[in-house]
Computed example of a mutant assay.
Amino acid sequence: MTATLLEDAPAAAPAAGRATVVLRRFLRRRGALAGAVGLVLLFLLAFAGPYLTPWSYSHIDYLALRQAPDAHHWWGTNRIGQDVFAQTVRGLQKSLAIGLLVAVLSTGLASLVGACAGYFGGWTDRALMFFVDLLLIFPSFLIIAVVSARLRSSSWLGLVALFGLFAWMITARVVRSMTLSLKEREFVRAARFMGVGPFRIIWRHVLPNVASFLIIDATIQVGGAVMSETALSCFGFGVPQPDVSLGTLIASGTSAAVTYPWMFFFAAGLLVVFVLAVNLVGDGLRDALDPTSGGGAR
């Protein structure tokens, strides 16, 4: 009888994988979910928005200079007759691209340098950390401002490279500390004794165990890069003309924020929403990946 009941009982559900558990924790946080929805909407606006309007970001309507929002120009026009909606979605598109590329570049560089320094130790560790400490003492914002002024005639990718070059050092030191602990773990020692190469161990065993930190760091880097580009644009150094970003739009519209508010507040509002959404997603990822961080138990 007992055997029959055991046979008729439904099979136990397989244990949920780590990715599923993390996703469930993330979705339980309303703030993180709101941030994720906000980011999706911003990406849709940035990349689908140009197809919703007949105006190009570089097109000039000489019959509508500083015109308030109406049926023809949804968000009005600027001082030379360019459509503010077209310019803003183009600027949002450029700022998102800058943020994502800087995050990928800086986080990838930090993970490579930090993991190699922590795993190999010795002179490799000393040389890499000396280079990291050397970059930390440089006034990065001043250097970026000076160099970017000489790159204004080139592509905006040079600006991305500059931001990425000076945004990875602190993360690299944290990854190094985590690697120093991980390389003494049993599974790393076992791989080493089996003859697995050091770079394969770093790729297969070390980096996956610091991935949660790197994901959180990347979300922070996205918002930080966009804010840095905005600050740089306020001083006249940013995405070279005739292209635009949220930073250049905010810088050009600041003087007209009171008299012609649509030239300033649409770009500034999208910047605030973007940075807030990124921070909410970063907090949600932190709590989902590390429930002991303080917020994951809610």
Rank of each mutant, 00 (worst) to 15 (best):
L5E: 10
L5W: 06
A11R: 15
A12D: 10
R18I: 11
T20P: 04
L23P: 00
R24C: 03
R30Y: 04
A36E: 13
A36Y: 12
L41K: 13
L42G: 11
L42H: 05
Y57V: 00
I60W: 13
D61T: 08
L63F: 03
A68D: 14
A71I: 07
W75L: 15
G76E: 04
I80N: 12
Q82L: 05
Q82I: 06
D83P: 09
T88W: 02
L92T: 08
S95Y: 00
I98L: 03
I98A: 01
V102W: 06
S111N: 08
G114K: 03
F120P: 02
G122S: 02
R126A: 15
L128A: 01
D133T: 00
L136W: 02
V147D: 06
A149V: 01
S154W: 14
A167D: 14
I170R: 06
V174P: 03
V175D: 04
L180I: 05
S181G: 11
K183L: 00
K183M: 01
R185V: 11
E186V: 10
F187H: 13
M194P: 03
M194V: 14
P198N: 06
F199G: 08
I201L: 01
W203Y: 13
W203S: 09
R204T: 12
H205V: 01
V210G: 01
L214M: 10
D217T: 12
A225W: 04
V226L: 05
E229R: 04
T230Q: 09
L232A: 07
F235E: 04
Q241A: 15
T248K: 00
A256W: 01
A257T: 02
Y260G: 13
P261Y: 09
F264G: 03
A267N: 10
G269A: 04
L270Y: 04
V275L: 14
V275H: 02
L276F: 14
A277V: 09
V278H: 05
N279H: 12
L280K: 06
G282Y: 00
G284F: 09
R286Q: 13
A288C: 05
T292F: 09
G295E: 08
